[in-house]
Amino acid sequence: MGDKNNRAAQDLVERIEYYDGADKRALWLSSDLVAELTPSEPGRAAVLARDAQALERPQSSRGVRVWRVRAQEGVDALARSLTREQVKFAPVVHESASSAAPMLALPGGAVATFPAGWDRARIDTWLAARGLRVESTVVAEANMHLVATAPGLESVRIANELYESGELVACTPNLWREARTR
């Protein structure tokens, strides 16, 4: 723990907005971190080729490997360029403007809650009209489904568009987040 006079810097500038239920919330895009969501040797090779450095993560996050990268094109574009079949990368984001704040990542997907009266056929039709599809059902009793999207900022854009259609109960980008065992 630090102290009040040794506060982490507010060093992030790129702000993104998304919907958490009906509330609009902000994320700040990391300038130099990408998350490898299914750590693998091909993934390691791909990022090492970009002169990247793996960061140690807590044990509870070992399903994800985080890399510090030099990304002149930005971490969102870099994550897209690194992503291959079986090798998935996502840009890291934070819930405040400090890179010391807990990390999140955008692995792709939008979690959409459809009105209770919509059956699966109606959902599929509605999504197909927007060029989208259900990837998996999240909570059947709540008519909550994961809509497939690309990783990164694209998932935020699509989630926002779906929610702002006014037809859904909720729609939020699928966020990976750090959590710790206690």
Binding site: A179, T181, R182
Partner: peptide
């Protein structure tokens, strides 16, 4: 037996999707 990182002292909110679940 898990949750947001301890020791930071900052409010770390739950998300609406978790609450709905």
């Amino acid at each position: 037996s898990w949750g947001a990182a301890d020791g930071l002292g900052i409010p770390q909110r739950s998300n609406a999707t978790w609450r709905a679940a």
